[in-house]
């Protein structure tokens, strides 16, 4: 089937199978670099995207579902080379080592802070529960998010 959706603001049209996941289409068909394959089963968060502004695991989302919708990855956050506050905070707090989990972490942080600009530690940890970092850089990640949250 043919689907049409907006990917990071651009119109995309692609033929997919009913069983294709969004992750598979983004990675192997379109070649998106800002979304990563980590587990393929909704455990690690490396493949996270926003679908109409809502945080989703692209590995658990069927590609057909995004027909007519807007898909946003971390690549669309910076405008004309100007980083968003949360991206700058990740940079300043050295909140990435290998970087593989970073796009998912940043999207999760963005959605959290939009809903709840001053999260408690517990709310912050809870929001990050679906994103794994294996370089064990959680502390700088938490520091980065706290630095942009309104205390």
């Amino acid at each position: 089937m043919r689907i049409r959706f907006k990917l990071d603001g651009q119109d995309v049209e692609v033929d997919v199978k009913h069983t294709d996941t969004l992750l598979k289409v983004l990675k192997d068909r379109i070649g998106v670099g800002s979304v990563h394959f980590g587990c393929g089963e909704g455990s690690c968060g490396a493949c996270m995207v926003l679908i109409n502004g809502r945080l989703r695991y692209s590995c658990l989302t069927l590609a057909g579902y995004v027909d007519g919708k807007e898909v946003t990855t971390v690549a669309a956050l910076a405008r004309d080379g100007e980083l968003t506050e949360i991206q700058r905070a990740f940079l300043e707090n050295d909140a990435a080592q290998c970087g593989y989990c970073t796009p998912g972490m940043i999207l999760t942080a963005k959605v959290l802070l939009e809903k709840n600009p001053s999260p408690s530690d517990e709310e912050l940890f809870d929001a990050l529960a679906g994103n794994l970092c294996r370089c064990t850089g959680y502390i700088p990640i938490i520091n980065a998010i706290k630095s942009v949250s309104r205390r």
Binding site: G33, F37, V74, L83, A96, G99, Y100, T102
Partner: peptide
């Protein structure tokens, strides 16, 4: 600074899967 950081936060770091 980790020189790859800018790539990491903008999703432009290239891994083999790309």
């Amino acid at each position: 600074k980790n020189v790859q950081l800018l790539g990491h936060v903008t999703g432009s770091t290239q891994y083999v899967d790309e």
